[in-house]
């Protein structure tokens, strides 16, 4: 059965990590066609063609597809949908924006944040901030779904799939891009980093978040934050880990000054090794930590930074 995977293309580049993890889910369902759409997408298409398991790459370039605006992107995919039983994308904010729109245009339900493929109609997905796992069987003709990347391994490369160029759909002209505010950083990307160091309200200020960043840099880690830290202005929104932020599953997650609310745990409890540093020995974060250290982060974290490496 034919599967359409929507590649994660940002400013003309393919996000290989997110796309190749969703590809692993896609190849369990059938022969995969990978779509790269954007104002420029040819280079992304060439990268996509190297991913193992891709049978064909479709490249759609059009100014209307820049910035992944929902309406023109959905129009493009709906035009292609007839050929496919499954339409997938990695669970990024771009895909969460567009995939439900595609599903509704096809009069089918969306399967959000799929964490396991049971068979071609049956999937697992977390509900209630990951406190329950639901197995659902879809009766829809086309399954439209987003794939939680933290639970699938990345597909390999070395492939050279054929690339076909296709036209964009007519732009409904309902929305326009104005600007992006993207923080430039040399650190690894949060959702694909091998190590994540996160700070919470306990860190106390934007200034003191430097302590967290210092430890992260020592470990070559990405920096994360709790919602309380983001809301208090200590950290930018794209660092938020949790039910309504990013879901991460690094080899090592260090939670500093974070109490461990279920909404936070939802975003990190699948990490391989979890370390918690908190001055409150009763903090719920210790219940999920492999190693817990009770102490004041202002002394513990600098000491840890110094002694590592």
């Amino acid at each position: 059965m034919a599967v359409l995977l929507i590649g994660e293309v940002t400013n003309g580049e393919l996000n290989v990590d997110a796309t190749s993890k969703a590809l692993t889910a896609a190849t369990q369902l059938g022969e995969v066609t990978l779509l790269c759409a954007g104002a420029s997408a040819a280079a992304a298409g060439e990268t996509a063609a190297t991913l193992a398991g891709v049978a064909k790459v479709l490249v759609a370039e059009d100014p209307s597809l820049g910035h992944r605006l929902a309406e023109p992107t959905a129009a493009l995919v709906v035009g292609l949908a007839g050929d496919y039983k499954h339409i997938l994308a990695p669970s990024t904010t771009d895909a969460k924006n567009v995939m439900p729109r595609i599903a509704a245009l096809l009069d089918v339900m969306i399967l959000s944040d799929v964490t396991a493929v049971v068979d071609a109609d049956t999937f697992e997905r977390p509900i209630y901030a990951g406190n329950a796992i639901q197995t659902v069987k879809s009766s829809d003709a086309t399954k439209v779904m987003t794939i939680r990347t933290s639970t699938f391994d990345a597909a390999g490369d070395g492939n050279s799939a054929p690339i076909e160029t296709i036209a964009a759909a007519e732009n409904p002209g309902l929305s326009e891009w104005v600007e992006d505010k993207v923080a430039e950083s040399d650190r690894p990307e949060l959702t694909s980093a091998g190590v994540v160091v996160s700070g919470g309200r306990g860190v106390g200020s934007e200034e003191d978040f430097k302590i967290i960043e210092g430890l992260a840099d020592k470990l070559g880690a990405a920096v994360g934050a709790s919602r309380a830290a983001v809301d208090s202005g200590y950290a930018p929104n794209d660092w938020q880990v949790g039910q309504t932020g990013k879901v991460v599953a690094p080899d090592l997650y260090i939670a500093v000054g974070i109490s461990g609310a279920i909404q936070h745990l939802a975003g990190m409890k699948d990490s391989k090794v979890i370390v918690a540093i908190n001055k409150d020995e009763e903090a719920p974060i210790f219940q999920v930590a492999d190693y817990g250290l009770v102490g004041d982060l202002f002394t513990v974290v600098p000491e840890l930074t110094e002694k590592l490496g």
Binding site: T122, K137, A289
Partner: peptide, 27 residues
């Protein structure tokens, strides 16, 4: 509904970890 709920299960629980007394032990 279009999605039939086959079952709802508990997520896998993490096994209990350990508390460490100081930074040296943690490292």
């Amino acid at each position: 509904p279009r999605l039939e709920i086959v079952k709802t299960s508990e997520p896998e629980a993490r096994k209990a970890g350990e508390m460490v007394p100081d930074v040296d032990t943690l490292v």
